[in-house]
Design a protein around this nucleic acid. Structure first.
Lengths: 225, 225
DNA sequence: TTGACATGAAAAAACAATTCGTCATCTCTT
DNA sequence: AAGAGATGACGAATTGTTTTTTCATGTCAA
């Protein structure tokens, strides 16, 4: 999952980066309003963590720009000093999905992100249920009939992203972007996605249901349920 | 324990080196007769593994040189091609402690070395018994009243060397040479020996007997029994 | 009182285990 | 038959753990 951190305070930004990277997120940074706008224009993100007090302008304008773009589903969490938490923010009228008053704990941030995923997918808990699997977002674990399936980081991320997009074809391209980030140009003619999918499938092979984890020739993969 | 390998066949020599290093020995090499003689003149070794067919002469002469030196107790194992195993070798008249016909297995070599230690210390098994400890040379383990005491490599080597010289003062210098090899000049003013001894003592502290593991001020340590 | 040793804690290095990416080859689908 | 994907095996990179070394400080014996 891709996250854009729009925050000029480097220390905080790097802390967030490290923390979220550990959690499997692909993190990008924008240190000011202008570069944030450029990045948003070019890429889509699963989350945008938006500081309001940017050196070259109000973060709210970034949010407005985003809302002008079509077909975007980027979740926005506003980060702001407590004193700045006034109604315009609390009401979330600008279209943000949540806000977080500084200083905040990284776990709090993560919890809010999970909450957004939960909301988007209409989940009751931080879990996806698919066939007999339970994919636990919080603990980053997968179980099959209450039996833990040990997945590596990459395997979990692949499964997670496919489940997040279940019943939709996920292209290799998109999968790569969301699991590895922008390593595309460097090595394009490798089959590492295939290899990881193979390994993942093997670990998930306890579920014998036919075609639940499909290969879509020339495009990518799809999980059906 | 220090081992000198006198052997011109590099492949074999390096194999032996790797194997013996894993077993905790400090290994040096001499590739020909002349350098072997120089080394023997300068240093003492616990074992000299002596190939007879050296490029610049007969290995036996190295052995003769060694016997000319006073106060030496280096154990010599002769390595030689099977065809060369004639009476002069078998009889071990030259003063070697054992011989080994090539090709031999590294474990066979090690077993012979252990046998020599056993003989020198008049042991019945490959074990030293000291107070309630059993120091197993073969398995490189230490037990106290049949309870295994987990030691690190260095800790074991220190204990082993002190036990080998029990009731004698072992200088820091000597201890360093036998456990670490010739790192002396590089860092002399370090207290790493003391630290390891301290850690070792802690692990051996189950034995409450007074002064069995003494510090000899300004010199080194001594194990009494 | 001083030098030598002991000690605890932490940094650095070594080691082991796991994960990741590459590659050559095989299989399947069209 | 040709292109796409699957697979097994292997080396590289990463991660986590243990061991080794350094260091600052405390203690003890001469």
């Amino acid at each position: 999952m891709n996250v854009l951190i729009v925050e000029d305070e480097k220390g905080l930004a790097l802390e967030m980066d490290e923390f979220l990277s550990r959690e499997g997120y692909i993190v990008e940074h924008a240190w000011k309003k202008s570069s944030a706008e450029e990045k948003i224009f070019v890429n889509q993100y699963d989350f945008i963590l938006l500081d309001l007090g940017l050196p070259d302008g109000d973060g709210f304008e970034v949010l407005k720009q985003l809302k002008n773009l079509k077909d975007r589903d980027d979740a926005v969490i506003i980060l702001t000093a407590r004193s700045a938490v006034d109604d315009r923010i609390k009401g979330l009228d600008g279209g943000a999905d949540d806000y977080l008053a500084k200083p905040f704990s990284l776990n709090e941030l993560l919890a809010r992100m999970h909450a957004i995923i939960r909301r988007k997918h209409k989940l009751e808990k931080n879990e996806f249920n698919i066939h007999d699997f339970v994919l636990d977002i919080q603990n980053r674990t997968v179980s099959y009939q209450n039996e833990r399936v040990p997945l590596t980081k990459k395997e979990f991320e692949i499964f997670n992203y496919l489940v997040l997009n279940k019943n939709r074809v996920v292209s290799r391209m998109s999968l790569t972007e969301h699991v590895w980030g922008d390593i595309l140009e460097v090595n394009s003619d490798s089959n590492f996605v295939d290899v990881h999918v193979k390994n993942l499938r093997k670990k998930l092979s306890q579920c014998a249901k036919a075609d639940w984890f499909e290969t879509v020739r020339s495009i990518g993969y799809r999980i059906n349920c």
